[in-house]
Design a protein around this nucleic acid. Sequence first.
DNA 1: CGGAGCGGGATTTTT
DNA 2: TCCCGCTCCG
Length: 807
Amino acid sequence: MNQGLNHPPPKRESDAEASRIAPRSGSLSERARAAAAPAAYLAGLNHEQRLAVETTEGPVLVLAGAGTGKTRVLTTRIAHLIATGRARPSDILAVTFTNKAAREMKARVGMLAGPAAEGMPWLGTFHAISTKILRRHAELVGLRSDFTILDVDDQIRLLKQVLQAANLDEKRWPARQLASHIDGWKNRALGPDQVPHGEAAAFANGRGAELYRHYQERLKILNAADFGDLLTETIRLFREHPDVLAQYQQRFRYMLVDEYQDTNVAQYLWLRLLAQGREPGHRNLACVGDDDQSIYGWRGAEVDNILRFEHDFPGAVVVRLERNYRSHAHILATASHLIAHNEGRLGKTLRTDDEPGEKVTITGAWDSEEEARLVGEEIEALQAKGHNLSEIAILVRISAQMRELEDRFVQLGLPYRVIGGPRFYERMEIRDALAYFRCVAQPADDLAFERILNTPKRGLGDATVQVLHAHARAARIPLMEAARFIVETEELKPKPRGALRELLSAFSRWSSLIDTTPQTELAEMILEESGYTEMWQKDRSAEAAGRLENLKELVRSLEEFPDLRAFLEHVSLVMDAVENDTEDRVSLMTLHAAKGLEFDTVFLPGWEEGLFPNQRALDESGRAGLEEERRLAHVGITRARRRAKIFFASNRRIHGLWNATIPSRFIDELPEDHVEVTEAPAAFSYGGYGKSRFDEVDSFSSSYATPGWQRAQNRGGFSGGGSRGGFAQGRGGYGGASGSGRGGLLIEGELVAKSSGPASEFAPADRVFHIKFGPGSVAAVDGNKLTVDFDKAGRKMVLDSFVQRQG
DNA sequence: CGGAGCGGGATTTTT
DNA sequence: TCCCGCTCCG
């Protein structure tokens, strides 16, 4: 044992093949020295982390709970492989999901292993690595090595053309929907011929697979690949060309995968193909992930991949990282207790030696406006105590929740920043500018050409596009080339012909400069001469100034690249821009966007049934959907280091209508010992009859996923047994107004109204009166929630305190 | 060809 | 309620 603790037997040394293909980076003496000195990079790792780092041979699954040092393990593992001479940087395949993660990993490996790790050539996203491989062997999958990568916009436009060619009504069969089907199929590595019959039938009367095929054909003609293709075409390459596959199998002696719980079927196959090159016991594949943080099922991630790891890779060592270094004990206990309600999980118990800290707070607000007000007040209070705003985050379930919070922050003059949302390269003006650059660098890029043909307006509308398309298709040439022919004919009216001729000569001019002019200069010239900059200068809308600013930023960012082509390659894969905002502001983002981040204080508003867990997730995916929502809640709580603050409102505006809401079932799943229900100060400044007080629950009235609720729905009658309770409004609220005397449930600041609590005073068939919906009869009772068939308004779910007994 | 007006839809989002 | 995308008309 030359490597110290838990080092596995050096099987590799006896692996003749591996030795042959793997010259070591250091001499024997260097390796021996590295082995003898207790490596500095291992210092400070706990036992499990060290095991995860040092189990280099064979398949390893590292289950890394939130805040347990996952990235540290991953980067240290790479450093360890290099420092011990097991692998050169170029022998290691390290895959991440996002460019951000790849960047961070590169930086951290560099810090640990020094220049030896410089330029890990195979550290990157699935997509970036796939692109690199595909460009080398493009011709084997029917592409040229300079194929373009389509962004979502391009994809949609292309699909619209496919739908039009198929004579389908775009209203009835939207391109977006087809795109999501195709993405789904590609996520599962299904080609047009492998689409299950039933699924193909779901679109355009069974023409789904056919359209998918046409789309793929169009892509090949355009010499283009969409994001899904980057993976599926690589898989096809590997399957159809075993020699190519073998080459990569030999190259990647060690493989690491980050966020394994987020892999989809295609990514799984991709990995498995590469891992299979070795003897089963020597598949050096280390996957790091957390099944409890799998929140991307809706876009194809298969939690199953991680749940099945030991089955897929027999002999796998599973290491659990359960020691949390992030959160105070109350927070951790709360998150753990909540996530324990999930059944589909491998099971981990996070622990910490940290102090208990503050309990997780739960605060009920009257409505979403008040909720926003309370959040704002608490933030101001923290600020007054000297907390940095940048250590505070507000995590919401859906973006629509942000608006009210933002409104409030603006009123308070509280600096905030929204994380996520449209990214830099997704902005219209950036895409337009990039389309110009693409046309200059790749004159055959039809989609780019079409995008800017009439932007800014130059009188080249639909009619012109049709003519160009017809010629291009007939002659099997790119649009720009077709355009060059057409301007020499009488095909177009004089005006558009002149405009087109002018545009073409501009492109010729720019293209001729591409190798001689500095790229920033060329870019500025293009934007200037095309009239694009002028278009925004003339625009008097509020955003115009920002757009011009973005264009400047774009030109500036060009400086970091050797030329325009290199820049375009970067941009097509890296759709994010590095943020360098250092101002002290609170962060506002969705729970999804928060994964991987941490803050001292985390606000979690909107914990209401229907919103969170989100009704749509429940409707679409049933129990699996509920569990994913619960994981989302778990992710939210575990973002907090010192304070987690949960809020719910009793009334929320949805699509402009006020809806009465009930607290999220997740609130009832929190451990009472670690949470505290706080009173909403000044919660009832509304007095009297708030505008939102008497309102319906109708948008949430579709079936809940809990068995009890479904039973109730089916039977139309129901008593007790439900899993959800609720919180009373602090202060007894409107008890007096309701007249139904539910005082027993309205205990100040207490966890009340569990379904096992006092039975409702109402029973099915009772006649009731609702101030808004009028008279109706009770159909079902669940604790303090009634399902009422209103004579005029139909079936609604309401809280019993909103109705009065009649007759 | 381009602006105004209308209807439908409205989680989560990376590459 | 609000936003986007398409249709209709000038």
